[in-house]
């Protein structure tokens, strides 16, 4: 077994665009769930808004790509308002139900055959990203330490992680302010916040919009890194939302760097176990009767799930959480 390659591939995955867009999505969920207590199960819907908002103006109307960025963000705001108006006055669990349903409805609308001219139907949209890659200052293969990246990958990484850093900076400024204090008060007890003259409904709406904008940015990085937008469950379906949640919980909810570190570790661990299992199989440490090659992709999720369970048992606050916060019932 080639341990060097296993570790190398794991680490490399942790900095590739996939980790960056998970980090963005998880930053959004951290604002929703970690700071405001909103159970948004439809982050994939916000990602779809970003991805399709970016791709549709180029694909269907031939507009420049940066107009797509504007449309993607605008669509996320509208989606947040649409979800928030009926549900934010209700109990928290209603938001969870409505968001997961709305995100799926959005995905099915995007893949509808009747909209093929605009959304590409079930084939999705390809070839909308050339405007973005025209700005790429890199060419050939870029070498960072032991890792090789293509120029395209490098460009998406720079933009993606740049957005992550800007996102963390903005989150810090927002959360470490009186505004962030009111947000946390709403998370702890809405009625108490109201009794002190804080408009809890407005705070939740603001949170839903801001977190949704991060979701849209994640969707754009996802679309750019793949060069295509697909309305498939694995790309923009519920699994994306729940992987982002897993990453957030791994890192620590309600912590500034929790979603970023969590995403890097989540993606790195997936790649690590994948490489480990494949190599172990190739070296006949694991006989073909127990795990076949095609099963590796599933088994790594099983292992990761077990890992998360162990984490929850021994470190429920996540890697970055504050243990004191778990000491009393909330």
């Amino acid at each position: 077994m080639d341990w060097a390659t296993i570790f190398e591939n794991g680490l490399k995955a942790g900095i590739r665009p996939e980790a960056a867009y998970f980090a963005l999505a998880a930053i959004g969920l951290n604002i929703h769930f970690g700071y405001t207590g909103l159970l948004n199960f439809g982050q994939a819907g916000f990602m779809a808004m970003g991805a399709y908002g970016l791709a549709i103006p180029v694909f269907a109307y031939g507009w420049p790509w940066w107009i797509g960025v504007f449309f993607g963000l605008l669509a996320a705001v509208l989606f947040a308002v649409l979800l928030g108006v009926p549900t934010l006055r209700l109990r928290a669990d209603y938001l969870a139900i409505v968001t997961i349903a709305a995100a799926e409805i959005i995905r099915f609308i995007f893949r509808a055959t009747d909209l093929r001219e605009i959304t590409g139907g079930s084939n999705g949209i390809n070839g909308f990203s050339s405007g973005f890659f025209d700005l790429n200052p890199f060419s050939g293969t870029i070498n960072i330490g032991p890792f090789d990246f293509t120029a395209r990958e490098m460009w998406v990484m720079i933009v993606g992680w740049g957005l992550v850093l800007i996102g963390i900076g903005l989150t810090y400024l927002m959360i470490e302010s009186p505004w962030g204090r009111v947000l946390k008060a709403v998370r702890e007890d809405e009625d108490a916040a109201r009794a002190l003259g804080k408009n809890a409904y407005s705070m939740k709406m603001q949170s839903l919009i801001i977190g949704g904008l991060f979701g849209a940015l994640a969707g754009m990085i996802l679309a750019l890194s793949q060069g295509s937008v697909q309305p498939s469950p694995t790309d923009l379906g519920p699994p994306k939302t729940f992987f982002a949640y897993a990453a957030l919980i791994l890192g620590g909810t309600g912590r500034l760097w929790g979603p970023v570190i969590g995403s890097i570790m989540f993606i790195a661990l997936l790649a690590f176990t994948d490489n480990l299992l494949r190599q172990a199989q190739a070296a006949d440490y694991i006989p073909e009767e127990i795990i076949t090659g095609t099963e590796v992709g599933v088994i790594r999720f099983v292992l990761l799930g077990v890992g998360l369970m162990i984490l929850m048992l021994y470190r429920p606050q996540g890697l970055f959480g504050d243990k004191r916060e778990m000491a009393f019932d909330v």
Binding site: R181, K184, A185, R187, E188, D189, D191, A192, A193, R194, A195, L196, G197, K198, N199, A200, G254, E325, F328, D329, V330
Partner: peptide, 22 residues
């Protein structure tokens, strides 16, 4: 409720609402 409070009429609760994680 929040505007009632802004007008200077503030209440407490029978079951105390301390904001635990603040």
């Amino acid at each position: 409720a929040h505007e009632v409070a802004l007008n200077g009429m503030v209440r407490t609760f029978q079951l105390t609402k301390a904001l635990s994680r603040l």
